[in-house]
Amino acid sequence: MVSTETQAEIAEYLGQVPSWITALPEPAADHSWGIVRDLQLGETELEQREKALVALGAAAAIQCPYCIRFHRAEAELEGVTDAEMAEAIAVTSGVRYFSTVLHGAEVDRDEFATETAEIAEHVEEQQSAAPSDD
């Protein structure tokens, strides 16, 4: 169970202490809230909108109905449209699909890393050569 101090903080952030908080084992409870508070809800390098889309994609990939519901609501609060959520989920599914292919085919990781670096270099060169909109 989270400490009384942490319960008060959670209630201030979320308007209540969600029932799932009680599922956290005592040694990790306050720390677990700190991760949510500091990384997911706090000011970081990513905007809240971006974090909501990343989290929704991850939730869909791991097929967690709890996380999908929470992060969909979070994305809606950030003004993310249904079309944008669908795209984020589709991008995530592409990553999962190709990860399955790569692992199943046992593609050589060193060769993959080399090819990826070459592709990135080529794309960067193409972007540099493209006429500017300015």
Rank of each mutant, 00 (worst) to 15 (best):
V2W: 04
V2Q: 08
V2D: 01
V2F: 07
S3A: 06
S3L: 06
T6H: 11
E9W: 04
I10T: 00
E12S: 08
G15E: 01
V17G: 00
S19V: 04
W20P: 00
I21Y: 06
T22W: 08
A23Y: 13
D30F: 07
H31L: 13
S32M: 12
S32T: 13
G34A: 05
L41I: 01
L41A: 05
E43G: 13
L46C: 08
E47S: 14
E47P: 01
Q48V: 09
Q48H: 15
E50C: 13
L53G: 02
G57R: 04
A58G: 12
A58I: 15
A60H: 13
A61G: 09
Q63V: 04
Y66C: 03
I68M: 10
I68C: 08
R69N: 15
R69K: 15
F70H: 15
F70G: 15
H71V: 00
E76A: 12
E76I: 13
G79I: 02
V80D: 03
T81R: 01
D82M: 05
D82N: 09
D82K: 12
A83L: 10
A86G: 12
A86Y: 10
A90F: 06
T92R: 01
G94C: 03
G94I: 00
G94R: 03
G94T: 01
R96L: 13
Y97K: 11
Y97L: 14
Y97H: 13
T100G: 13
E106T: 11
D110L: 07
D110W: 05
F112C: 06
F112Y: 12
F112V: 03
A113H: 07
A113T: 08
T116R: 12
E125A: 15
Q126P: 09
A130E: 10
A130G: 09
